[in-house]
């Protein structure tokens, strides 16, 4: 259908194939959400081993991509979503994410944020908490923040928010295992 990477249909068929070849039951669904260009797709690639196009360009993902990851001894569905600023959608691709989050039964939403723009992005965390979604905050690009001498007190943030908070750098493959361990209690 398109020249680029993995578009909706192709991913679905791949997912179907992996289901057919792998009899383990599906245990839960986790959705990666957040503003554009925070690294959701990189994290998706790291978790599932399925390639979706990644760019330093907001709006690269316009369709939902689905894959699978192993958490402990379970296989869990992972959904990569187009970036969004708020649960109240302005554009069509934001509506796709909103509908997925609000109308489907998600075991865990992972809100991916950038360490250096934490303040701008936490508003969406609040909104996701308000509607009562099971939520985990993944603070990404911690390496870039470090180079700017910025660090996040994730323990204190975890205490204040009352949800798990993980720091990581998906592009550098840092913090992925820790993230998986925290996911385990939700699926």
């Amino acid at each position: 259908m398109s020249c680029y990477g993995c578009s909706g249909n192709k991913c679905k068929s791949r997912r179907w194939l992996s289901l057919a070849s792998n009899p383990s039951p599906e245990e839960g669904i986790i959705a990666l959400v957040g503003m554009p260009n925070v690294g959701k797709s990189v994290l998706f690639n790291r978790l599932t081993g399925t390639y979706v196009t990644v760019s330093n360009y907001p709006g690269t993902t316009v369709e939902i991509a689905r894959g699978k990851t192993q958490i402990g001894n379970k296989y869990v569905s992972v959904i990569d979503t187009p970036g969004m600023y708020s649960l109240i959608p302005i554009t069509e691709e934001e509506r796709v994410t909103r509908d997925l989050l609000l109308r489907e039964d998600i075991s865990l939403a992972i809100h991916v944020v950038e360490a250096k723009n934490l303040g701008r992005m936490l508003a969406l965390t609040f909104q996701l908490l308000e509607v009562g979604l099971p939520l985990l905050l993944a603070i990404n690009m911690i390496d870039e923040a470090k180079r700017m001498n910025i660090a996040v007190d994730s323990l204190s943030l975890e205490e204040k928010l009352g949800i798990p908070v993980v720091t990581m750098s998906a592009a550098k493959r840092q913090g992925i295992e820790q993230l998986k361990m925290r996911i385990a209690s939700y699926v």
Partner: peptide, 24 residues
């Protein structure tokens, strides 16, 4: 929400030395 977000950020962000928030 935005206001609370910025306040919370202030409480948990650790700026070291000549940290530059404006990005690379």
């Amino acid at each position: 929400r935005s206001q609370r977000a910025l306040e919370l950020e202030q409480q948990v962000l650790l700026l070291q030395g000549d940290s530059n928030r404006r990005g690379i």
